[in-house]
Amino acid sequence: MVMESTVQKTMHLHLDDNLSKEISTAVCETMRKTFKIEMVPGQYEIGEGVASLVGDVTGVIGIVQDQLEGTLALSLSYDVMRDLLPQIVGRSVSITHEMAVDAVGEMTNMIFGQVKCGINGTGLQIKLGIPTVVSGKGHFVSHFHRGKYMIIPFKMDDQLIQVYVALHSGNNKYD
């Protein structure tokens, strides 16, 4: 009798072209459907440590998968929000800080909800937390586990939106 040993292989999420593609699709689709705006995704960059984002309002959401943890963030400037929101609330309404924060929270929810759906459709099983929003001129985002991060830029006319992703595992094997 031949005994066959099976090695169970767990798939993990990586900071790579596939993840960048999932995020780009989700950002472009959310912006097109919600604001009728076409975004152009740029080349992502990989870095390490603390990242400075260009936005004034950032939606942050935790991600977990098997033994992997991470942070997803969507960062926009007040100028971008002042361009986007009048399409929903009307041109005559002044865009307040509270409106910008509320909208970024919901955009974070929609974009990363879609990313989760796309990733889980490939067989990976990720879970997301509840989004929180931080705001303030020139803030930076620091993932507490100081591993590698990915930043994907998106252009809207001459404005910039950024998506930040940091992942880590116990042994940093999956960065």
């Binding site: 919600t34 929101l85 929903i88 609330v89 409106m99 509320d102 909208a103 929270g105 919901e106 955009m107």
Partner: peptide, 11 residues
Amino acid sequence: DHFLIRQFVRN
């Protein structure tokens, strides 16, 4: 709970 969605759906 988000005004963005309330307004989007209303539109």
